[in-house]
Design a protein around this nucleic acid. Structure first.
Lengths: 338, 338
DNA sequence: TGCTGGCACTCACGTGGGAAGAGTGCCAGG
DNA sequence: CCTGGCACTCTTCCCACGTGAGTGCCAGCA
């Protein structure tokens, strides 16, 4: 077990390194932080911390930098979450309140996160799975062609074309629309399959084929759209990564373009609060030198999607966590209102 | 006026430099291209080309590299557009045909362009202005709350919430829906304002307020959505920019995040064919060391949106132009079919 | 007039050797 | 258990130097 002072030394190392981007030595440490001990003592502590794997030296005659394990300890034990100041909170709220639709909410959230954290922001669109149906609309575009429009309580709209096996009258369509909505409006997406199961039975034999087709398209939409969309922004902040960055930035950009990777990344975080994945804790190899700070957000008490930022492992964790948490909270509010 | 051989020298310089990324000297030129003259002669030609501003030397004892002006001449006079090979064309077609909706078409187009050109791809969503209304749907969500859904012939769907000044009955809503559609379905967006002008007159005095509100929301949607969306991809290719790239890549990433900038960029190109803007020809400062190759695409004969790529001025212009042109053509086909 | 070979010149670049400086580990003493 | 001191290790910076690519210019030749 590490003594209290050694933990303080580790904390000081993390803070200094995050600030300066340079390996920090024993002398500089005692000068900048009032640890009450001499550099020599700090050196002993550092040697111990290095033995435990919390810090490392890039080369023999250089200072120490935190390892992933060191950052992990820092985040878990040594640092709190820095709350936003009142003006910051007001700014967040104002900025998000101007949004006109869901796309705009997400777009603004991304910008905001990127600006606040000066890192790459990732925001997942509210998921369909946990949300509810507001309305299903059916439009006849041609005798045997129907457009299905699905509207969710989060304001999201999905549409699909349906080619019917047989012509489908305006009256039947109205009938189907009414029955469908009476069953699914206000219900959770996960419940929909069960709720519409026996719907074709109430229809004319001639129409059943079409009804089934429409229903299966609806169900497909629910499933397919679980491969959810997301929006990213602030990639220009990658240039602040470090000096060696050409090698680092490449795989990160590649990973950011793989929506699947990002979704998995966000999805892994199961915590109710802010989750931090540091360096090699990220499954994806290209992100081994980055940390991901993420959190769920939602319109009600429930999280319907995630948002977060991707940055260098050498990041201001308390500040970033505070910003991410605050933004998630306000986005949730905005969604609940609309 | 430059002699034929000098133009050939310029062409050779551009080709070599694009290939090697290194300043090209007179000796190397005569070795790699059969110009039929000695290095000394080429040196004279190079001096002339430099006087005219087509090429430049990074430093005294280095070879020459093309200037923006040199690339311009190369694109205008010396290089054609390299057509895609048959297998490439088939691959493009196959890849695009799998798309399920408009979002997917755009997403696939971006990926495709980025892969083919190994550069950053930008694809604008089909614009509303030049397209036509397929259907307008009105849904009653609450007594005084209506959702307006606009469906375009390009498959795009826009929705807006409308808060009505007075409760609006289901019957009136159906009436409005029917009348609205009979007037605007199949018509161009630009014609819509004129077509719905006198619509409120046919309604009950009680309902006119609501009808007007709905209509003005519809018109707003048309205008607002002219600030069109776009999708970008292949940003990882920025890492292949050059050696000096930290300084270059930053403003480019920033510019790419400013949708307004990109839209202006694409919008500037008025040519019916492929347009190339080289280096400082781009109005935006951050893109002064990049070239933009863009072209319009559309479902019919008409261009409804633009797509293109952003890359270093040192790019393979014939190949890039060929890829951009081919992709635009096939996207147009796909859109026309759906 | 235009092409060619020759030649001197200019720089960027890589190499190697110090010298400087930061930072460490260890030890003896308080 | 902390502290000051000291020797040691490397990295980094700087400078000097040789190398080589590439140029510009000139005189000669078709």
């Amino acid at each position: 077990m590490l003594s209290e002072r050694r933990l303080q030394v580790l904390r000081a190392i993390v803070q200094d390194y995050v600030g300066t981007e340079e390996p920090v030595g024993s002398k500089a440490l005692t000068e900048r932080h009032s640890l009450g001990v001499s550099p020599a003592t700090v050196r002993n502590d550092m040697a111990a911390l290095e033995d435990e794997g919390y810090i490392a030296q890039p080369h023999t005659s250089a200072g120490r930098i935190p390892t992933d394990k060191g950052y992990r300890l820092f985040v878990d034990k040594l640092a709190g979450v820095k709350p936003m100041t009142a003006p910051e909170r007001r700014a967040i709220q104002n900025f998000l309140e101007g949004a006109v639709d869901l796309d705009d909410v997400v777009a603004r959230t991304v910008r905001l996160l990127a600006q606040l954290t000066r890192q790459v922001a990732v925001v997942q669109y509210p998921s369909l799975t946990r949300s509810t149906v507001r309305h299903v609309e059916l439009l006849s575009l041609a005798p045997a062609r129907v457009m299905l429009v699905l509207i969710t309580d989060t304001g999201r709209v999905e549409q699909r074309m349906v080619d019917c096996p047989a012509p489908f009258g305006e009256a039947s369509l109205a009938d189907l629309r009414a029955r469908l909505n009476s069953r699914v409006a206000g219900r959770r997406f996960t419940d929909v399959p069960r709720l519409v199961e026996d719907l074709p039975e109430g229809f004319d034999v001639d129409d059943r084929g079409t009804v089934s087709t429409v229903l299966s398209t609806l169900l497909e939409t629910l499933v397919e759209e679980n491969e959810e969309r997301l929006m990213i922004g602030g990639t220009a902040n990658l240039t602040r990564f470090g000096h060696d960055f050409p090698l680092v930035i490449r795989p990160v950009l590649e990973a950011l373009e793989e929506q699947v990777v990002l979704l998995k990344l966000l999805g892994e975080a199961k915590d109710p609060g802010v989750t931090v994945r540091i360096g090699h804790e990220n499954a994806h190899e290209g992100l081994n030198s980055t940390s991901v700070v993420s959190v769920g957000y939602g319109s009600g008490g429930e999280a319907v999607a995630k948002l977060g930022v991707v940055g260098p492992t050498r990041m201001d964790y308390p500040g970033t966590m505070g910003a991410v948490r605050a933004v998630a909270r306000y986005v949730g509010q905005i969604l609940a209102e609309s």
